[in-house]
């Protein structure tokens, strides 16, 4: 699913950071706020059974990365109230957001779930359509490799990508 650390990176082109988002608290943000980070972006919806099925593995992946500065954005196109109610009911611990504007065309979103990894240079280096088990050693190694390549420190995940436990 992901390239090995030593492989040359194939990219899906540059990300477009002009993507307005809301937090589940209703605060306004945008992808531009996270430019320069290594990003793990998952687009999902509460009505989408395969999307929901992979959320637990995304949580495990995030936990397994420890202090590695990877920013997770779990984004739904649904109303914030619906997503917040769903997340609270199931107790997920991920940085959920909802769209304020449609995802830019650069991401070529055609299906749910779709997951993207964006490197610190703003290149989309992974685009995966469909559910997957993200709690995978290869995925973790790939993200750690991107963090190391970018010379990002390991002081901890950025506050922007962190949610209260």
């Amino acid at each position: 699913m992901v390239p090995r650390s030593g492989d040359p990176l194939e990219t899906y082109g540059p990300a477009d950071f002009d993507w307005g988002l809301f937090t589940l608290e209703g605060d306004t943000t945008s992808l531009r706020s996270f430019a320069g980070d290594v990003l793990f972006i998952n687009v999902w919806a509460t009505w989408c059974a395969p999307c929901v099925a992979e959320l637990a593995s995304i949580e495990r992946l995030r936990d397994s990365l420890g202090d590695a500065p990877v920013t997770f954005l779990i984004v739904s196109p649904e109303p914030v109230e619906r997503v917040a109610a769903f997340v609270n009911r199931h107790g997920y611990r991920l940085p959920f957001h909802v769209e304020r504007r449609e995802m830019p065309d650069a991401f070529d979103l055609r299906a749910l779930p779709t997951t993207y990894i964006v490197d610190a240079n703003g290149q989309i280096v992974l685009r995966h359509r469909g559910a997957a088990d993200w709690a995978d050693d290869g995925v973790r190694a790939f993200l750690q490799h991107l963090v190391g390549s970018a010379g990002l420190d390991s002081a901890g995940p950025t506050a922007r990508g962190t949610v209260a436990p």
Binding site: T46, P77, E99, R110
Partner: peptide, 11 residues
Amino acid sequence: DYIAGVGLGGT
């Protein structure tokens, strides 16, 4: 038609 945005959002 591919329904982006509101369609994917269930509305």
